[in-house]
Design a protein around this nucleic acid. Structure first.
Lengths: 188, 188
DNA sequence: TCTTGCTATGCACTTTGTTGCATAGGCAAG
DNA sequence: CTTGCCTATGCAACAAAGTGCATAGCAAGA
């Protein structure tokens, strides 16, 4: 099982609607898990049927009403049980690596541009992460915002540091790839 | 599209049977793409119907006969076309990161063991990668083996270096996670 | 008022991936 | 000669995920 647990964690950190969850999956949680809104609504419905979450209709002004979900006891229990279950170390899926090995059988120039694009995308993500880190975990104690505190905050931070480390690694590796491709092209 | 291209690249590097491909997906290609044999056989059949690959029955002694697949012109063209198509930077799926954020709502001791297990798994993988690097790309010119040469070899190497860099990063990050969890536990 | 855009929710279809099961040849050890 | 293991291929059922489409409230500006 999978996305259910990411949703449970997100709802424990902060109850919210499907729409809000979808937006969190574009940032924060999205650093290590992606999900479309269709998927989220579908899973939320199932979780509601299974009694994992409670729903509350929230009337809003100036925008459509929404359904706010929060974690029910059954959901909390399901999460705890999952947290105690060992999981397999993730298996990666790197299309780009396939392309790189495929470049041996093709003109490398197109790949060069592709790798540069990816490098840029990772540099952008890194910048976003660093901005987020400064905003949410920078030294300043923002009296106005009510973010999570203590352990919750520290654990969010260490996960974000993971994202930052990952992006830095990718950039370094893509530089290695670029250098290799340039060498390869020069040889022809 | 996805696994088709990984298979095409693998078959270009070296023709082989479904069984052999499945084993490559446990090593080499498996560093950045996973696939079960069921999946591979299914896709190979489709690729054969589409004329992407050619089949040749190979009679073997001491073991069951096999079907050796190699890339046909149509497959080669399909690969080239894919190589020239831009792809989206991969989206990650880190169950462990979900668990780490979930640990804020649970006893962290269980997670501590889990993270240590993962750290060990990554250290093991790193050791395997490094051994493979030494074997296949170490300075020695092994006159007896006929590995790929030139660009193909260099590109395989840079992908392997990516795997090595990734595992090193994961180990470093998991150490950070462990330290954070220890601190969290000490605070209680 | 018409269009654009954001909030908000959802269905239907298709593709992909996973799990379980089944078959079969041959080797080696007990 | 039976059991276990490796090679080798495949089907069927199911679960998960992605893609496309549809609806609707409300606001702001052209």
């Amino acid at each position: 099982m999978a996305i259910e647990h990411a949703i449970l964690v997100s709802l424990l950190e902060q109850p919210g609607s499907g729409y809000e969850l979808a937006r969190r999956f574009e940032r924060s949680i999205g650093y290590f898990w992606t999900a479309t809104h269709q998927q989220i609504y579908r899973v939320l419905k199932r979780m509601e049927n299974d009694g994992w979450v409670d729903v509350r209709a929230v009337v809003q002004q100036g925008r459509p009403d929404k359904k706010e979900y929060s974690v029910a006891d059954l959901g909390r229990a399901a999460l705890t049980s999952w947290l105690h279950d060992p999981i397999e170390p993730e298996s990666v899926r790197h299309d780009l690596a396939v392309k790189i090995r495929g470049a041996a059988f093709d003109d490398p120039s197109a790949l060069l541009r592709e790798v540069e694009r990816h490098r840029q995308a990772h540099a952008d993500r890194l910048a976003r992460y660093l901005a987020g880190e400064d905003r949410d975990f920078g030294g300043h104690t923002d009296g106005g915002s009510y973010g999570p505190e203590g352990a919750e905050r520290e654990l969010q931070h260490v996960v974000l540091r993971g994202g930052i480390t990952y992006e830095r690694m990718m950039i370094a590796w893509l530089d290695d790839v670029l250098a290799t491709l340039h060498r390869f092209r020069a040889e022809r």
